[in-house]
Design a protein around this nucleic acid. Sequence first.
DNA 1: TATTGTTATACTCTATAACTATA
DNA 2: TATAGTTATAGAGTATAACAATA
Lengths: 169, 169
Amino acid sequence: MAPTSAALPASGEREQLSLVDGLAQLSFAVHGVLESRAADLDLSVTQARLLGVLRDRLPTMNELARLLGLDKSSVTGLVDRAERRGLVARVPSTEDKRSVLVKLTDEGRDLVASAAGGFAAEVSALLEVLPASDREALAAIVSRLLVANAARRGLDLFPASGSRDQSTR
Amino acid sequence: MAPTSAALPASGEREQLSLVDGLAQLSFAVHGVLESRAADLDLSVTQARLLGVLRDRLPTMNELARLLGLDKSSVTGLVDRAERRGLVARVPSTEDKRSVLVKLTDEGRDLVASAAGGFAAEVSALLEVLPASDREALAAIVSRLLVANAARRGLDLFPASGSRDQSTR
DNA sequence: TATTGTTATACTCTATAACTATA
DNA sequence: TATAGTTATAGAGTATAACAATA
């Protein structure tokens, strides 16, 4: 189920990977790890993302839709299926009677911890072929890249640090 | 449609991104770029992958299934929809009358070139926030990482360089 | 009137199982 | 008998449009 080849980029003309092609292949590899670790727990990547988002948030359906980049009607079905499995629960909002909050159940929390652990272990294994100096340099550069782009788009890279939940108001 | 946050990893406790979390977020960012560039051309990521795989191959349905990591019945539908749009064509094999070869049409080739160009441009834009020295270091490290892991799994990172097509026999 | 969430509907993507035609 | 491909069927995931309840 894990896609092994990059497919779209890297038409394969050079003998050395370009940065764009390299990042594309790396991205597929990491995405494939996520896919297979989630599948081990009978989770799709989407369900895993849902649980991941809920780890440090108690969002409304609407906020969830924005966090996941989906239409609200898609989130209805997504949460339906997760709720049917006992991984999340809908909680009526007291502030606004139209709203519904979505929270992780204990079972959901266990499952997402498990998935995150497996994911981290397998990505770490991928990285073991690199010398420690490369890993340190890579961490620093990737961090700079993400921070700079997040800043450029006015996003919060560390949502749960300062104020508690509901970050995207 | 592009997922902005990493969601699963990065529970958000540190003030500095770990390498695993960073790679996860980077992977989501790159995947999101692929998604949105493909969507611009009314392609799903799956359709884009199909076209990408076909750029330098003339595989049978069966080979295509292995290349994409899908069941052959899934590939039937995938190719059906692409064929209906005029992006690929089925060609009966002369060697084995059971087999069907799948090839890119001219229109499909144009479209995938367009998609690849847009993808490269947008990923390059993401990278522009980095100093050139970081980009060079990143390219070198990512390349080492991919080559080492490919070698560890006995894979061919440069399929179309030596022998022509049908690499995964 | 505007917003929140759900429902109805439709399409893509995916898999399993059964089938047809060839080998 | 085994392999290549398709079909039938089922389910997840997604979106658009229409709706009910609440603001």
